[in-house]
């Protein structure tokens, strides 16, 4: 009897708890519902309020080219325009130009250190005077050989050691062969600088020359530059998209640069605008790449400095310090 009583009490208690718990849940749901309804009503009201005609008419051009007149209140300002533009630039910037494989040929017999390429490049990419996407070096291969000037851009290697080491895919190789940088992604670890055997990369150690202001970042121009991120030669990917040749190539007064598409097997001279077969140009003139033995497969070819129209001279010197002029770094 006693046991039974206890059992009943227990059961009542359980039922009581269950009921209470149910009511509690119901209350929560009701609460959420009420808040949601109130929220919806408010949002709807707010939306309608915005639509109240102001009486001011604005003329707009529709997507299919019709000119229409609408009330100012009907216009919705796209606040995400900048983000959307950035995303679109990033998307196409990472993709590259389909079917292309860009190459550059640098004719060392023509270069006389005019440095117009460097100036055009630094201007376009908003670089400081000490930051070089392209750098004209003074080289001498061995003790008794003739020195020469060697413009050095990024070699856009087909086996790039820099993209391999990047921890966040901020530098990458596109389908058209260009190695690009995304300075919205870069964390500033500088592993790519360590990885590049050609010292092609620069870093924004301090605030860049020109402030970003509200400009949208163009990954194909790497402008605006950002403090704490990498920059380097981009083969002027922004120009290539517009069907123009790179800044350096166009700026050269001496016909040093040839630029073109390996797939088409044509390259065009930036100064003379002459177009020739890429394979024939490098075959007939002994074209080579720098430090081929590293296996990086550079896509910038050099034509050797022979039959030069000018004698080498730099700051009155015709011989160079071997510590500062050898491919391979050390003394010859």
């Amino acid at each position: 009897m006693n046991e039974n009583q206890e059992h009943n009490d227990q059961q009542n208690l359980n039922e009581d708890q269950a009921r209470r718990s149910f009511l509690k849940k119901l209350g929560i749901f009701a609460g959420i519902g009420a808040v949601a309804t109130a929220g919806a009503v408010y949002v709807g009201f707010d939306h309608e309020k915005k639509k109240n005609p102001t009486g001011k008419k604005v003329r707009v051009l529709t997507a299919d080219g019709k000119l229409m007149e609408v009330d100012e209140a009907e216009l919705e300002k796209n606040e995400n325009a900048a983000t959307e533009e950035l995303n679109e630039l990033q998307r196409r910037g990472r993709e590259g130009l389909p079917g292309k494989h860009w190459v550059m040929v640098i004719d060392l017999s023509k270069c006389r250190n005019a440095r117009m390429c460097m100036a055009a490049c630094q201007g376009a990419h908003e670089l400081r005077p000490e930051q070089h996407h392209i750098n004209v070096l003074r080289m001498q291969d061995a003790d008794h050989t003739e020195p020469y000037f060697m413009p050095k851009p990024c070699y856009h290697c087909d086996n790039p050691p820099c993209t391999k080491v990047c921890p966040v895919d901020a530098t990458f190789k596109r389908q058209d062969g260009i190695v690009l940088i995304d300075n919205e992604r870069c964390i500033g670890c500088r592993f790519c600088i360590a990885g590049c055997p050609y010292s092609a990369r620069v870093f924004n150690w301090i605030e860049p020359l020109k402030p970003a202001n509200d400009r949208v970042y163009d990954v194909e121009l790497n402008v605006p530059q950002k403090k704490g991120t990498i920059s380097k030669c981009l083969f002027s990917a922004d120009c290539l998209r517009k069907g123009e040749m790179p800044y350096c190539t166009r700026a050269c007064p001496n016909g040093v640069y040839w630029f073109g598409d390996r797939n088409e097997d044509t390259v065009t001279n930036g100064t003379t605008k002459e177009t020739v077969s890429f394979s024939e140009l490098i075959r007939k003139n002994g074209g080579y790449t720098v430090l081929e033995e590293l296996g990086t497969k550079p896509q910038v070819y050099y034509l050797p400095p022979k039959n030069r129209a000018f004698p080498f001279q730099y700051e009155g010197k015709t011989e160079l310090d071997p510590n500062d002029s050898r491919i391979g770094g050390g003394r010859g």
Binding site: V136, L137, M139, Y198, S199, I327, G329
Partner: peptide, 9 residues
């Protein structure tokens, strides 16, 4: 001492 000389900096 990279492979290519440090110049113009």
């Amino acid at each position: 001492h990279p492979y290519l000389p440090i110049q113009n900096v």
